[in-house]
Design a protein around this nucleic acid. Sequence first.
DNA 1: CAGTATCCCTCAAGATACTG
DNA 2: CAGTATCTTGAGGGATACTG
Lengths: 143, 143
Amino acid sequence: MTSPEPCPVARALDAIGDRWSLLIVRDAFDGVQRFGDLQRNLGMARNILSDRLRKLVDAGVLQTQPASDGSAYQEYALTAKGLGLFPVVVALRQWGEDQLFAPGEAHSSLVEKASGQPVARMQPQTADGRVLAPGAAVVRKLG
Amino acid sequence: MTSPEPCPVARALDAIGDRWSLLIVRDAFDGVQRFGDLQRNLGMARNILSDRLRKLVDAGVLQTQPASDGSAYQEYALTAKGLGLFPVVVALRQWGEDQLFAPGEAHSSLVEKASGQPVARMQPQTADGRVLAPGAAVVRKLG
DNA sequence: CAGTATCCCTCAAGATACTG
DNA sequence: CAGTATCTTGAGGGATACTG
């Protein structure tokens, strides 16, 4: 479970598959960029957040940049690599909403209601754009 | 980080966000259904695999069924809920391939080459099917 | 405010022996 | 072969005090 993982899924999980990284990334997509905001938002220990941020920066998922409000501190922003996690976060949210909530149960995708806009969803598809349903036909194509 | 998580992403990660579950699910999508095959394939300790399988069954992601070869044991198969993780696994694999491998480096999505068929890819899209690029416009829609 | 440094502790994970 | 039982370890994580 370490070193040169040959499986892309395993390698991805090695990079961002821990308990906090993807939640940090989700918040980053949501525009949260400050240490304190992340910490309050996620309710995690400062040292852990600090460590996770460093690792995400080392991994090239986040980058630090001067604070937009002119304060002496920095902000954490998604890199291109980090933005590439968008489908992952969307897919996770989608599965969570579809499979992990009771029919009437409220979840916190409030933005949809607030904005009146449907949130992004995912559909696996072939390279030529045909929609793909999970099942026997694709079962051996996951790598 | 426990109990009634209101965020779908957090709840999803609570269910399958540990170090092994998604790898087991990936193998399941790949047709691996036997305890011993999973154990050898993933190189994980028997007791951990046993525990993880039980939890995945409890979570409704996997179900046991009589072995197809008539042996006395059982097989672990994806439920509908588990099949719903297809986009998640695909998105993870896609990100891994695109961002975590050097240009010429080989990864183990051999199936594509073997079958000559392109593997599934993901594209986030709106409810009406328009393709969505990650960025400012969608940044507040992740929930 | 944005971190770092310490201390502590739980739990996930590994190894391995055992059972039907 | 398909697990279960037991033991041990180490890393991940939490609380909190501290610094620039």
